[in-house]
Each structure stands twice: as structure tokens, then as C-alpha cells.
Amino acid sequence: MTSNNLFRKFLLKNHSLLLVAIFMGSLAFTSCKKQPVATGPTAEEQMIAQAKSELQALLNNESMSIEEKERRLQAIKDKNIQDAEVQSLIAQVEAQIAKAKAEQLRMEEEEKRRQAELERQRKLESSPAYKLNNFFNSIGSASSADAANAQISQALGLFSSPSAPVLIIIAQSGGITDYDEPTTIQKYLNYLKDQKKKADTIENIVFDDAGKIKELELTKLR
């Protein structure tokens, strides 16, 4: 009996055992192949994750200045990360910055308008016409003759003289201006006091060199 025969006999006798051994061996080999490599995320993966985190933080931060957000966003964009989610977040932050800039611009314009209006109001309130109108109203609505007289005295301080002329336009047609009979400021102010009337509208004021009113033109047409 040769050794080959013996081997053949052994195979025939134990073929089942052999198949099991082969199967187990192949299983062990296969499972060894599928086992992951025991290393951490790659540098690129880390960069992507960090970018996402920073971008999300930028989106959520409402107190950061626009300039700072722009600076940080630019730093992320400079990394040139080709990741769809990162690109989407960048677009969101850009949109947020654009919206904030537009809002800031609107608020600046609004503030400019408000300041201009305040300035216009300050100028108006310090103008003789405004002061005079206030006197007209307070004289016409004074509760007593004494109160009206006190206002008249103050109002006369705006004028070069109590006899400063007051002209009142009653009509304008075909290039002709018609006036009521000219009066003086003292008489006109007393007229408002007596008649308790709303004053005619100021049309024009002529000042003297000292900045006092030397002639007043009113109109009934407005």
C-alpha cells in the first residue's frame, strides 16, 4: 500500500470533516478581509466637519458683526472644500450676510432721513415764520385779554417796530395782486386777539439788517 492510497483512503473516510475545515477556514479568511482598518478620520474629513460646524455657528450667531462673519466665511471659502453640504451652508451664510447688509443699509438710510427731518424741524422751529405762527395761534386762542396781551408783547419783539406794515393778499388774478387795506403788526395782533380768529397764512417776510421783521405779507388764498 502506497502512501497515495493511504491519503485517498483518508480523504474518502473524512471528506465531511475536511469540508467543514475548509469552510471554517474560508470563513475566517473572509472575515479577516472585511475588518476595517483601525485608523481615525482623514484630514479632509476633519476639515469638512470643521467647516460645517463653523458655518453652522455663523448661521446661528446673530450678534457677530457683518464684517467678522464675512472674514470668517472667506477663510472657509479659501479652503476650497468641494463638499455639497459645505457649499450649501456657504450659500446660506452668504444670503444671510446679504440680507443683513441690506437691512443695515436700510437702517442707515432711515437714520439719515430721521436726522434730516430733525434738522429741518430744528431749523423750522428756530425760524421767525414758525415763531410768528405760534404767536398768532396763541394770541387767537388766548383765554383772556391779559394772556393775549402778554403774547402780543413777545411777538412784537420779532419786529423792527410795532408799526411794521402787514399786507394781506385777498386775490391774485391776471398778474394783479389785490390786498386788503394795509395795517400794522400791532393792529393785526390785536385784531387776532379781538376776533379770536385763525391768522392768515404767512406769504413773505422782509427782514431789516438787524434780522427783525420790517414787513409781513400774509395771504387769505391758502
Partner: peptide, 17 residues
């Protein structure tokens, strides 16, 4: 009645009632 008077170097036409 329409009248005229000089005020501030201007000739003013006014109605005297």
C-alpha cells in the same frame, strides 16, 4: 374802493372797505 399806496418801495393796490 380800490386804492394804491407805497410800501417798502412797492406800489400796493388794495381794496378799501
Amino acid at each position: 374802493e380800490r386804492k394804491q399806496t407805497q410800501i417798502g418801495g412797492r406800489l400796493i393796490g388794495f381794496w378799501d372797505v
